[in-house]
Design a binder for these strands. Sequence first.
DNA 1: GGAATTTGTAACGGCATGTAACGCACCGCG
DNA 2: CGCGGTGCGTTACATGCCGTTACAAATTCC
Lengths: 239, 239
Amino acid sequence: MDNSPHILIVDDDREIRDLLGRFLQKHGCRVTTARDGREMRAALEDWSIALIVLDLMLPGEDGLTLCRELRANSEIPIIMLTAMGEETDRIVGLELGADDYVAKPFNPRELLARIKAVLRRGSERAEAPPADGGQFARFAGWTLDLARRHLRSPDDVAVTLTTGEYELLVAFVDHPQRVLSRDQLLDFTRGRSAAPFDRSVDIQVSRLRRKIEADSAAPELIKTVRSGGYMFTPAVERS
Amino acid sequence: MDNSPHILIVDDDREIRDLLGRFLQKHGCRVTTARDGREMRAALEDWSIALIVLDLMLPGEDGLTLCRELRANSEIPIIMLTAMGEETDRIVGLELGADDYVAKPFNPRELLARIKAVLRRGSERAEAPPADGGQFARFAGWTLDLARRHLRSPDDVAVTLTTGEYELLVAFVDHPQRVLSRDQLLDFTRGRSAAPFDRSVDIQVSRLRRKIEADSAAPELIKTVRSGGYMFTPAVERS
DNA sequence: GGAATTTGTAACGGCATGTAACGCACCGCG
DNA sequence: CGCGGTGCGTTACATGCCGTTACAAATTCC
């Protein structure tokens, strides 16, 4: 349950969320659930989701709407759940960018198999090309170039970051002014969940602070929240 | 009964309040009850509520009205109690933002199970994204930057606060000019209730005073209310 | 395949936080 | 006016969380 894929289940039916969630957890996935578009977006904010299982029928915004919205911003694989086995829905779903679909009532094993297949397929595929919007992130005078993986200090000096430091900084820049738990940070940077005595986040934070804090003994940019995690305090402006 | 979730029961029926309250307390919850919208709002002022059990039928403002009002300001999970098992009510309730609903007469165990499920889900969910409004709180010349966790003294010197001191000050700033009991302060800062001989609030107050009071022997900002708690006396202006 | 770099693990030390204990202020009482 | 009692401020530790260093494992780069 460490380096496992993080699956997001979006369904308004509590039974399905709970049963499917437990089933997938038993089979080596991390699982987060959401009942609607709002919770889905929140979960996508909070975790690095590997794949979304999306119900077609939802109160409020329905699955097709959400699917289209997701595809506009991201490449996250989607498996649609549909009560109707109609061919048209299948086609519409796939045309909107769903990677597969499963008709309800479904066999959990079948869904799991399709999840694995889609993930396997996805991992073979190219990494997402430079996601268009927001190539630069500016905070407290610093400039982070997301495309070139470059960081420039306020006095315009290039600072070289290791991969891990860069990923950590990106996680912070993507979620500023929020307390992020070590678990969330590991999910964002490494796609895994924290082991009981995992201190790797702490030392990466320590190393990153040494490079970007004026006084790493009194950090201003990355604040520690005791027994809570860390918080990136400056406002971030993207362009 | 220490680090337990604080449940607010809103129902006009004393039987239900008492029985359900005792049942939940026996199962490891802290419980506060309210008879109507007014008492509900008071309880939300006084405590850090983890979840609200809200009756649909209430004298005065009914549950749906309150539910909509709550959702306008907060993300606190809501479980609706409804006498009618009609599907329409369920849908209306859920669309207004209730997280689950239980039909009366209900089995307390079932309600408890749903409470736990909602809390589990909620804990996975996002903190509110950088809530834009009200990032600064000003009092007696001091400026507290809620986004950056910064405090500046009247003569514009940065004062570093520990996590605990910061949380305590936020609790005061959120509830100025009111007497706050130690129990309430613990609830706001740590989300737990006070143990019989718990003095931890006292010493945090002592430490905070040392940093923000001109003369910590004659405190002006944080006054002690004998056998009552503490009171944050200055007016707080937010922006 | 070997060297350099990066990253995680273990360990130590420092600091924040809570517990215990002491002393003082306030209060009702004789 | 003295006297205990209660409640609070504070100091002195104990505990646990966190920052950091040192080193080992893993990864990358030739």
